[in-house]
């Protein structure tokens, strides 16, 4: 019985906070837009009993999903989100790996402090930090002032409201999610393995590729998914830092919901996004599982 409760609890949690909202969104995505509150029909009216439910089901259709295929805005937004998420994941990896490596190599007594510094940004609200980037990146911002003062540029650069700013924002925001799993993998790495590799004729660099990288693979994969998955549906960063040409599905979603008040289409967009995300999430789970097995 106790075990049942223990196993049941997380499922109950999932049911209440994931499955029920998901079903509601799914239902809305199958409805039609209407000028009412809430702004869609049909509404489920339980007072009419079974017949009412049948009528309700009959009124649902896949119209909104078909609509998504007719307007190329949507698939372009998905594609461009995918592209931005992928590219920024790679950039986060390129930035995060050396940092994680340096952390894992730092003297043992420094490591807790350094880790603390990696996590420190979380102490400030994410939104405030993104606003801070607006202050840094805009034409009169700190970055331009600095570059002008150094004489590296003569005209201020336009960074804010471009895709570049979006990349900077994503890399900055998700960097800790990349660093932490890679650090965890690198920290476990036994130095004598590198010595063994060198002893057997590897140079430092080839030992890095043949030993360090494969052995931190699970951390790298975990970090990449932890960045890629939220970046794909990112809304705040593209809408605050990105420009009019920045096309990301999170932004489209927001606009459908709040500007167009087209809840059914917005829900359909959300459902498709979720389906797209399921693939990397399953891959991520599999990676974690494999790692656990490898650790025996």
């Amino acid at each position: 019985m106790r075990r049942l409760i223990l196993i049941g609890l997380p499922y109950l949690w999932l049911l209440a906070l994931f499955l029920v909202p998901f079903l509601i969104v799914l239902k809305i995505s199958l409805s039609d837009i209407a000028l009412s509150i809430p702004p869609y029909t049909p509404q489920l009216d339980l007072s009419e009993g079974w017949a009412g439910f049948r009528a309700f089901l009959a009124a649902l259709d896949f119209e909104n999903f078909t609509f998504l295929t007719t307007d190329d805005l949507y698939w372009k937004a998905y594609l461009s989100s995918f592209q931005i998420a992928l590219l920024s994941t790679l950039m986060t990896l390129a930035t995060g790996f050396p940092i994680a490596y340096a952390l894992a190599r730092a003297p043992r007594e420094w490591r807790p402090t350094l880790l603390m510094l990696v996590i420190l940004p979380f102490w400030t609200s994410f939104l405030i930090r993104v606003y801070a980037w607006m202050g840094i990146l805009n034409t009169e911002g700190l970055l331009n002032q600095l570059l002008l003062a150094l004489g590296l540029i003569s005209e201020p650069l336009t960074i804010l409201n471009t895709n570049t700013a979006v990349y900077i924002g994503i890399v900055y925001t998700y960097l800790p999610f990349m660093i932490l799993p890679i650090y965890a993998a690198l920290e476990k790495l036994d130095d004598s393995l590198l010595e063994a590799a060198e002893d057997l004729g590897c140079s430092r660099i080839s030992a890095f590729w043949l030993v360090t990288v494969p052995l931190s693979r699970s951390g790298i994969v975990a970090g990449c998914f932890l960045v890629f998955i939220p970046a794909l549906g990112e809304f705040v960063i593209p809408s605050l830092l990105g420009g009019s040409q920045t096309l990301m599905i999170g932004k489209v979603l927001w606009e459908e919901f709040f500007s167009n008040r087209d809840w059914p289409v917005a829900s359909a967009v959300a459902i498709i996004l979720l389906l797209i995300l399921i693939v990397p999430i399953i891959l991520f789970q599999r990676n974690q599982q494999k790692q656990r097995e490898a650790e025996g």
Binding site: D190, S192, L193, E195, A196, A197, D199, L200, V211, P214, L215, R217, A294
Partner: peptide
């Protein structure tokens, strides 16, 4: 070549 006391086998 050295055989390590801790073996240092490559786990992967």
């Amino acid at each position: 070549n050295m055989m390590f006391q801790s073996y240092a086998l490559f786990p992967h």
